[in-house]
Design a protein around this nucleic acid. Structure first.
Ligand SMILES: [Mn+2]
Ligand SMILES: [Mn+2]
Ligand SMILES: [Mn+2]
Ligand SMILES: [Mn+2]
Lengths: 223, 223
DNA sequence: ATAATTTTTTAGACTTATCTAAAAAAATGA
DNA sequence: TCATTTTTTTAGATAAGTCTAAAAAATTAT
C-alpha cells in the first residue's frame, strides 16, 4: 500500500513561508493584506489561496479573521526556511557568493523537494547553525536555535556588542554594511546616541562610524 | 533601456530538452508522438506546446512534419543539459549520492535559472568533463566534448575496452551494473559472443561475467 | 488507387494561479 | 450611534498547461 506524500506547489510553499515569517513579527494572526504585500500580489488572490490552504488543513482560517499556521503548515514552512538558509550558506561558503547575492538564488533553491538532498547538504556543510545573515538554520527535526539579539538602536552609550544578525536583507543594505565593515562577527562599541536625530556613533576596528537610527535598528548584536 | 531576457517556463524547458535528446538519436525531425512518450503526456498537449515554442522561434515546426530546434532553442536545451549534468556530478562527488540516485534530483535542479550559479558550480567542481554516467558536460559556451564510444555488443571476441558510458539511465540498470562491477572506468575484455542468444561473456577484474545482448547494447566503451 | 491504419491536429473542457471591479464586513471616529 | 474609511471577500475574466473525443492528414497495405 503506497502512502501518498502531500505535495504542495511552489506557490503554496511561498504562501506558507510568508505566513510563517509574518507570524514571527506579528504574534497575532496574519492579515490578508500583509500577505498580499509580502508576496507582491493582490488581496483577492490571497483570499483564494487561503481557502485552499485551509482545505488542506495547513492554516487556521475564518473569514475576516486572518490566519495562523497549523502544526503541519508550520512544519512545512520551517522546512522551507531550513532549505533556504542551508542553500544560502552553501552559496557563500562553497561557491564564494557574497552575502548580498544569495537571497534570490535561495528563493529558487528552497523549493527543491528531496529531504535526502537537504540532509546530505547539511552534513556536507558540517551542520551550520546560522546562515550568512546570522539567521538560525532549523535542524532536520525543525528545531531552531534562537539567540537573544538586540538592535544597536537599543544600546546605551558605552555598551559593547558583537554583530550577530540583520533585520533587513536587501542587497543595498547588506552592501552598505559591508562597506562600513559592519559584518557578522564584528565587535562594536556604541559611543554615543546623537540627541538631535537618534543616529548613533560607534567604534568598529578602532574606526569611528556614524549610522542613522534606521540602520541601527536593523543591525542585531549580542551584548 | 532595459533588455528583457526571454524567460521560458519549467515546462517549456522540458519540451526543449526532450526534443534535443530525441534529435540526437533520430537525426531526422522529431515526431509529436515521440515527444509525448518522452514527457509522459498526450499528443494533443504536445501539439499545443509546439505551437507556442514555434511562436517563440525556439523550434521549426510545420504541421504534421515534426520539429527541429532552432539555433536558439538548441542553445537553451544544451544549457539545461549542462546544468543537469553538473548537478549530477555535484551530487555524486560532493554529497556522496550513488550514480543511480541522482537523475531525478537533477531533473529539478536543472531548472534553477542563474547562469552565475552554474558557472560557479562548474568552477567549484573543477570543470568536470563528464557526468557520473559518462555523459559529456557542455562548457559555458555550449561546446560539447564528445568521445567516440561503441556498445559492448559491437565488440568482437578478444576485444578489450574501457567502460566510458551507459545508454540506459534507469536506477534498476545502474544498480545492476554496480553489482556486476561494470562501472565507469573499468577495463573489460570480451571473451565470447554466445551464438545462441547473442549474449556476451566478458572479463572484468579477472572475473568472468555474462551479460544479455540487451545489457551489452547499453554499455559504452572505448577500444 | 483505394481502403485501412496510424499519426497529428482541433475542439472543447478542466485546473491552478492570477487579476480588476464590485459587494460585504469590520474598524474608526465624530 | 451612525456614517466614513479600510479591509476582506466575491464575481467574473484571463493565461498556462493539461486532458478526452473527434476530425483531418499522412502512411501503409491490399
Ligand atoms: Mn534569504
Ligand atoms: Mn538569510
Ligand atoms: Mn540524468
Ligand atoms: Mn547523467
Amino acid at each position: 500500500m503506497i502512502r501518498f506524500v502531500e505535495m504542495n506547489s511552489y506557490t503554496e510553499e511561498n504562501y506558507l513561508k510568508s505566513i510563517y515569517h509574518l507570524s514571527l513579527s506579528n504574534e497575532e494572526s496574519v492579515s490578508t493584506n500583509s500577505i498580499a504585500a509580502a508576496l507582491n500580489t493582490k488581496a483577492a488572490s490571497v483570499t483564494d489561496m487561503l481557502k485552499k490552504l485551509a482545505d488542506k488543513k495547513l492554516i487556521n482560517y475564518t473569514k475576516y479573521q486572518g490566519v495562523t499556521l497549523t502544526e503541519e503548515g508550520n512544519g512545512i514552512a520551517i522546512n522551507i526556511v531550513r532549505k533556504h538558509r542551508l542553500w544560502e550558506y552553501f552559496l557563500v561558503e562553497k561557491l564564494n557568493f557574497k552575502w548580498d547575492e544569495v537571497h534570490e538564488l535561495a528563493e529558487e533553491l528552497e523549493h527543491i523537494t528531496s529531504a535526502e538532498l537537504v540532509d546530505r547538504l547539511d552534513k556536507f556543510l558540517n551542520f551550520p547553525k546560522y546562515d550568512p545573515h546570522g539567521d538560525p538554520i532549523p535542524d532536520n527535526t525543525g528545531r531552531i536555535k534562537k539567540h537573544e539579539l538586540i538592535p544597536i538602536s537599543a544600546l546605551k552609550d558605552g555598551d559593547k556588542g558583537i554583530i550577530m544578525g540583520v533585520r533587513e536583507h536587501t542587497p543595498v543594505f547588506l552592501q552598505y554594511l559591508e562597506k562600513m565593515n559592519l559584518t557578522i562577527g564584528k565587535h562594536i562599541q556604541l559611543i554615543e546616541v546623537v540627541a538631535f536625530d537618534a543616529s548613533v556613533i560607534l567604534k568598529v576596528n578602532k574606526e569611528t562610524v556614524s549610522l542613522s537610527r534606521d540602520a541601527a535598528k536593523n543591525i542585531l548584536v549580542t551584548v
